[in-house]
């Protein structure tokens, strides 16, 4: 059994090409939402100073980070400033929806990234809360009389409670048989 482990980045060109392709597909997909609306192309090129401001902010954060700033402060400032830039000139409904989208993406990142199974469950709770904010914002601004969105939130709360109970029971059961909660070591379904 070795004591010193050196892990190297796999340098095969296939992997790199796959990375490029995924990156390009994501960039194209991010603009497709606007592109398919009428006058979408003009809007991207003329009306999107806010995107460019956020990009500049992220670049500035990257430079400060490489000089030696603290990572958490830079990430928090970048996310907050981007959120305020993107929502300040929007109507109220769009602000709530943008906040919900931000929470959802953060929950997605935590769900994919974290190695502790309990933290994955926490991130799923964040994503469910983002969906709840969406539903309540629509019921406030589009349908304030019948309040169907709030009804759906009640059902989502029920399912979330059930999901948390079952998920934590599964984590406990796996912990009992494997003595770990590390996601990388759950190889029960690997063939």
């Amino acid at each position: 059994m070795q004591n010193v482990v050196t892990v190297k980045e796999p340098q095969s060109s296939v992997n790199l090409a796959l990375g490029y392709a995924l990156f390009a597909a994501a960039v194209v997909g991010s603009y497709a939402g606007v592109l398919f609306t009428p006058t979408g192309i003009e809007r991207i090129f003329t009306n999107h100073y806010d995107f460019w401001a956020c990009l500049g902010l992220a670049l500035a954060g990257w430079i400060v980070r490489s000089v030696g700033g603290h990572k958490g402060v830079i990430v928090t400032m970048t996310v907050l400033a981007s959120f305020i830039i993107l929502t300040l000139h929007q109507p109220m409904l769009l602000r709530y929806l943008t906040f919900a989208a931000l929470l959802f993406s953060m929950g997605l990142y935590g769900m994919v990234q974290s190695r502790n199974a309990v933290r994955v469950l926490l991130s799923i709770e964040l994503m469910l809360n983002a969906v709840n904010i969406n539903l309540i914002a629509f019921s406030r601004y589009v349908d304030p009389v019948a309040l169907k969105g709030q009804l759906f939130v009640i059902f989502v709360l029920t399912v979330a409670a059930a999901e948390a109970a079952v998920g934590l029971a599964v984590v406990l059961a796996i912990y009992r048989s494997r003595q770990t909660v590390d996601m990388d070591k759950f190889t029960l379904l690997k063939w």
Binding site: V27, G33, L86, L94, L102, L108, Y109, V112, P144
Partner: peptide, 26 residues
């Protein structure tokens, strides 16, 4: 990669939101 996927999912959601303004606001 997961960071980029989540950032781009946010950008996708946001651009879909500001592209859509036909909601029947009350």
């Amino acid at each position: 990669l997961s960071l980029w996927v989540s950032v781009l999912s946010f950008v996708t959601l946001y651009s879909a939101l500001i592209g859509e303004n036909h909601w029947p606001l009350s």
